[in-house]
Each structure stands twice: as structure tokens, then as C-alpha cells.
């Protein structure tokens, strides 16, 4: 088997995640889909690391994880705040800026 299959898998997961972001209204599920996309990207980075034979890809994947963790913290806090004030976690309901 060619390790490039990992990349195909990553592409597939990424696309599924992106579709999830666009299809789901629940903000938490949307967030999970984003995590899925990030993980797909991490898989690709790890595979690149193996492809090139150095550890830079893994370093970047590591940073991605850290940043994703920070993003999850802030994002979930925002979701909680919105839920508290609007009693809804639907992204479609957050249309305050719409004319």
C-alpha cells in the first residue's frame, strides 16, 4: 500500500467535515465538524512528515492542536454565552446583523 492513501483519507474526512459545517444548524455540531476538518489536516501533515522524512510536519500538527484547543475553549465559551442570552444554539438564529 502506498502511504499516499492517508492523504486521500485526509481529503475525504476534510470534505465530510466541511459539509457538516454547512449542513448542521447546531453550533456545537458545527464546531465538532470543524474539529474533524482540523484533524484531517493534522493527518495530512503527519503523512507529509513521513513523506519528507523530517519532523517539521509533526511540529506544525502539534501547533495546530494547540491552537485548536484554544479555539475550542473560546468558541465553546461564545456558544454558552449565546445560548444563555438567546436560549438557542442554532447558528441560523444568530442573524442580528441581518438588515
Amino acid at each position: 500500500m502506498n502511504p499516499v492513501n492517508y492523504l486521500f483519507l485526509a481529503a475525504l474526512l476534510f470534505t465530510i467535515g466541511a459539509s457538516g459545517v454547512l449542513l448542521r444548524r447546531n453550533a456545537i455540531v458545527v464546531f465538532m465538524s470543524i474539529e474533524l476538518m482540523l484533524n484531517a489536516a493534522n493527518l495530512a501533515l503527519v503523512t507529509f512528515s513521513r513523506m519528507h522524512g523530517n519532523l517539521d510536519g509533526q511540529i506544525i500538527a502539534f501547533f495546530t492542536m494547540v491552537v485548536a484547543a484554544a479555539e475550542v475553549v473560546v468558541g465553546l465559551a461564545i456558544i454558552v454565552t449565546i445560548f444563555r442570552s438567546r436560549h438557542s444554539a442554532s447558528v441560523d438564529d444568530a442573524g442580528l446583523m441581518k438588515l
Binding site: V21, L22, V91, D92, G95, M97, K98, L99
Partner: peptide, 14 residues
């Protein structure tokens, strides 16, 4: 096109 739904805008990004 500006329907106020973030998901619609996201589709265009996608």
C-alpha cells in the same frame, strides 16, 4: 443572497 444565514455565506466560501 444576503439572507443573514452564516451557513449560506460559508457555502460560498467553500
Amino acid at each position: 443572497l444576503q439572507n443573514g444565514y452564516a451557513r449560506s455565506y460559508a457555502v460560498s466560501m467553500f
